[in-house]
């Protein structure tokens, strides 16, 4: 779909960004992204994608809004307490940008819904607080050959990498097991989550619009205590339980 004159006016200032331009903006309009868990990370991430004019957002997030969500889940509001989080996500994103399409799933990613959710998207953002969900999403992205932007945080630190199945390490290369001792509740300042969310959104916008250099085969590590950003090289694991057996389509045996 072409950009309308109204859309050209709305996105004019970002269309000026070298490499994005009107062609990139049109690619964003014709793209669909899946954001799983739209909380402290996924909320500001979805907000930035919506503001940037992504064509369609698929949001998956279960549960009702709790008081303890409100320090970081910026799409939730006090009047939403006790109501499904996903309703507030949809409402607030459409207030921000009524031109985008939003499809919602009032559940977190599960074995039952992951295949359908991933299949509809061009790009997946992984913002879950549990490793089981992240590894499940990673496995499905490798299976369907969909790019995955993985952002995570803990306390005053964050990390980010972009996974292109077959070309980069997948999440299971980095974490071949569910680490013991990880708790569902963790120390978090909303600004740290939002920082990682917006860095993840930038990766997604670059990937979908086709400009800039992606954070592939590297991991960005952010330390908010010292304001240090560093990048480390990461490698595929030859014995990765998820992606080591993957063969690119051209190399697959004929059926």
């Amino acid at each position: 779909m072409e950009l309308t004159d109204r859309e050209r006016a709305i996105y004019e200032w970002q269309i000026w960004v070298k490499g994005l331009g009107e062609t990139g903006q049109q690619k964003l309009k014709n793209s669909t992204a899946l954001v799983t868990r739209v909380g402290g990370l996924g909320g500001p991430l979805a907000q930035s994608l919506a503001a940037a004019g992504l064509g369609k957002l698929i949001l998956a997030h279960g549960g009702d809004t709790k008081s303890s969500d409100l320090n970081r889940q910026i799409l939730q509001t006090h009047d939403q307490l006790g109501k499904p989080r996903i309703e507030s996500c949809r409402r607030r994103l459409l207030e921000l940008n009524p031109r985008i399409k939003i499809e919602t799933c009032g559940e977190n990613v599960t074995e039952e819904n992951v295949r359908g959710l991933v299949s509809e998207a061009d790009l997946i953002f992984d913002c879950a607080p549990l490793f089981e969900e992240r590894l499940l999403l990673n496995r499905e992205c490798v299976r369907q050959q969909k790019p995955l932007v993985d952002a995570a945080m803990f306390e005053m630190e964050g990390q980010l990498t972009t996974i292109i199945p077959g070309q980069t390490p997948c999440l299971a290369c980095l974490y071949p097991e569910v680490p013991p001792g990880w708790k569902r509740e963790f120390p978090v300042i909303g600004a740290v989550s939002a920082t990682m969310a917006n860095l993840a959104a930038l990766e997604g916008l670059k990937l979908l619009a086709g400009f800039g250099e992606l954070l592939t085969n590297r991991m960005l590590i952010f330390d908010a205590r010292s304001m240090d950003f560093s990048k480390i090289a990461i490698q595929r694991r030859p014995d990765c339980p998820v992606c080591s057996s993957y063969k690119p389509p051209a190399a697959q045996e004929p059926i």
Binding site: G42, C127, L130, F131, R134, A152, F154, E155, L174, F186
Partner: peptide, 8 residues
């Protein structure tokens, strides 16, 4: 040494 993080 960086243990994995999954916070959202």
């Amino acid at each position: 040494l960086l243990p994995p993080m999954s916070g959202g």
